[in-house]
Design a protein around this nucleic acid. Structure first.
Lengths: 229, 229
DNA sequence: TTCGAAAAAATGTGATCACAATATGGACGA
DNA sequence: TCGTCCATATTGTGATCACATTTTTTCGAA
């Protein structure tokens, strides 16, 4: 039981720790779309009682990461053409703005800017390793880490929460697509361009880079056959 | 205790009914920003046990409608200049798109289009009554009803959920602002222009009308003194 | 072997209790 | 009158149980 939650985990509230763990797992694609989740299974998996698992699940359902069937069964969110289109529109509308805000935030402080650039460079390097090795799970995790490291720097928590919700909804689906098409299909991201834009304090250019990064990614998966996922 | 939840309420799940009731109350501004909420109080107010109240609260916290203090107290979300700016950006990015999608959805069916126009006209008429009578609560409720009647017609549930989250966050604050400045301050909305745009199947024009409606509303409250709310 | 009905297991939900932490109100002293 | 401290009430959280419903498995008949 390597997933057992230790008392030292961040946040002394158990249901919060469960939520964070599951969130991480969902975004990095460790669950399959439509797969079943249950209160007791989740509880025993993390070595907690039913209550924290219930609360974490309730929260994940509210964020759209989990769905409840008509018979009150809990599953991971599924994907459809329409839903993916919606998520694409929302991502393109929100994430470039977050990126721009992040750039503007750190442009005033050399220290903060360097810290962000270093962090993003680190994430991107790990991403390149994942692409090289073809590990879809690592790719999904490090790609999300790159984006959210950038977005978090904007300190725009309201919009950040919306974007998190979006990522949790397409994360499991994205993981399947990556595993099917191969990580190399997604190697031409705009991450290095984004880092350079931050370095140049060019928030408009960063906005453009993130927009294209998202747009390209969406294009890569638009011709996927949904019926088999 | 007129708020007691009856067994016949929609959705046989109690915590869902509690959630809906509180959500409605929050959007229509029946709570003050920062006011205290507790599990047991909410439970007794709706005549239910603690569990459904807990689950409803958890869900509302996940949507940003409620906040948890550092000492684990539950309060209604508060507002700040930064937060309002974020909400404004997100609203302007998402809601006009929802409106456009709604217009495109109903433009194919005369019956659906007429139904939507009638519904929106009804909402707008009630809104005018609220403006006339100066009832801030009625204004808040009917204004939200107008917007969401439109957005729901888009059948874009992912984006709709994001927008709902935004409204629940600024709803209580908005209610205070309306009560302070008076409903007549908000009488120059673009609702009638929006209805006409739908009638003309001009989704771009509708998009513009909703954008301006939101933009004007934001402008009206941008000079509010936050420290007293 | 296959299909369907019955038995068994699993599941979400609601209710209640215990507990540690926090907030509240009042008494007391300066 | 004002601040400090303490007793009390309130609160979020976790744990456990019961129950109705649903899912899964089992087993026997065709």
């Amino acid at each position: 039981m390597p997933n057992t939650i230790s008392p030292s985990s961040s946040g002394s509230v158990v249901h919060e720790q469960v939520f964070e763990r599951v969130r991480e797992a969902i975004i990095s694609g460790q669950f399959s779309p439509g797969s079943a989740i249950s209160v007791r299974k989740l509880a025993s998996e993390y070595g907690v009682s039913a209550m924290p698992a219930r609360e974490a699940i309730r929260r994940l359902v509210a964020m759209g990461a989990l769905e409840m069937t008509d018979t009150r069964r809990i599953t991971l969110a599924t994907m459809s053409q329409d839903k993916l289109a919606e998520i694409g529109i929302a991502r393109l509308a929100l994430e470039p703005v977050l990126a721009m805000k992040a750039s503007e935030k750190v442009s005033g402080s050399h220290r903060a800017k360097k810290r962000l650039i270093d962090l993003l460079t680190h994430c991107d390097n790990e991403l390149d390793v994942a692409i090289e090795s073809g590990d879809a799970t690592d790719y999904a995790r490090h790609n999300s880490e790159f984006h959210f490291a950038l977005y978090r720097a904007s300190e725009a928590n309201v919009m950040l929460s919306l974007v998190e919700s979006l990522w949790m909804q397409f994360g499991p689906f994205m993981r399947v697509v990556i595993g099917r098409k191969g990580t190399s299909w997604f190697k031409d991201d705009k991450h290095k361009a984004a880092i350079e834009a931050i370095r140049a304090d060019d928030s408009a250019l960063l906005r453009q880079a993130i927009y294209e990064d998202i747009s390209d990614g969406l294009k890569s998966i638009s011709e996927v056959d949904f019926s088999s996922i």
